[in-house]
């Protein structure tokens, strides 16, 4: 009994949540083909917090959208939970958080979190319970009946994270979710996101263009560079799982940040 359980566990751990093999994506434009992604290889293990960092045009968002099945690669193989991205999307395998909170202004905060639950056909009582639980998780309990315009930008983004968490997908894809927020709010949300990740054990794919944000949050940092969009470095973070904000002044932190910066610069010189 014990054995089979632990066997199943290792089996799950061994299988990558996201596996990309020589992934290519070329957009045909009027000015000729644009290589948004070229020869991207990456495995993301269950429970990883992976950041994608790079200048604009490096394909980090495109890669995330490929994982979500919002873009279709033109070459190579990509699997999500062992399925194609489109199958994974149909199986509602992930929650997606956009750069803008994209809350529907005519729905209350509770109504916005309830949106995916309604579409996925949860029962009324299950909906109410999950809305309550996820809003608590992002520290928005008591704001259920407020409308988005009544909340600050940071709170709106937290609500949009709650919306992505509400249906318990194992994978959370976040596309520069805090890019439009000021430094102070961003720090706080980063800290909260880490706690959330710790509590829920989800696998997170996180696109950012901020080096401190990437280093602070991630277990792995994927450095990308543009024209063509490709991976130039994958950095395993040696930082402990418990990360107070002042870890950013530690020597390890600064070293990793330095390596990320070097990676970004190298990608730039290549061009």
């Amino acid at each position: 009994m014990m054995d089979s359980a632990s066997l199943a566990e290792t089996d799950v751990v061994a299988k990558p949540v996201i596996a990309a093999r020589s992934l290519n994506l070329t957009f045909e434009t009027n000015d000729g083909p644009v290589h948004a992604l070229r020869d991207v290889n990456l495995d993301v293990a269950r429970g990883d917090f992976v950041s994608f960092i790079g200048p604009s045009g490096c394909g980090k968002t495109t890669f995330l959208r490929c994982i979500a099945g919002l873009e279709t690669p033109t070459g190579g193989a990509l699997s999500v939970n062992g399925m194609t991205p489109d199958e994974a999307r149909r199986a509602r395998a992930y929650g997606y958080v956009f750069q803008a909170a994209s809350l529907y202004p005519w729905r209350t905060i509770g109504g916005n979190v309830r949106l995916p639950l309604e579409i996925m056909g949860f029962s009324k009582s299950e909906q109410a319970e999950r809305v309550r639980r996820t809003l608590e998780l992002v520290d928005l309990a008591g704001f259920e009946k407020k409308y988005p315009w009544q909340l600050s930008g940071g709170m709106q983004q937290r609500a949009s994270i709650a919306r992505a968490l509400a249906f318990d997908a194992d994978l959370l894809l976040m596309d520069e979710p805090f890019g439009a927020l000021d430094e102070i709010v961003r720090d706080r949300l980063n800290e909260e996101l880490l706690k959330l990740w710790d509590r829920t054990g989800k696998t997170i794919g996180f696109v950012t263009h901020s080096i401190p944000e990437a280093v602070y949050l991630s277990t792995r940092i994927v450095v990308m560079s543009p024209r063509p969009g490709r991976i130039t470095d994958v950095i395993e973070s040696p930082l402990p799982k418990e990360r107070p904000l002042d870890i950013r002044d530690s020597r390890e932190f600064i070293e990793i940040a330095h390596r990320v910066r070097e990676g970004l610069r190298a990608g730039h010189v290549d061009e």
């Binding site: 099945g69 919002l70 999307r89 509602r92 992930y94 750069q99 994209s102 995916p116 996925m120």
Partner: peptide, 17 residues
């Protein structure tokens, strides 16, 4: 806008939804 439509797409929502 596109992100609002993309959001629906990630939920695999029907065009009726």
């Amino acid at each position: 806008d596109q992100s609002q439509l993309d959001l629906m797409h990630t939920y695999n929502a029907s065009s009726r939804d």
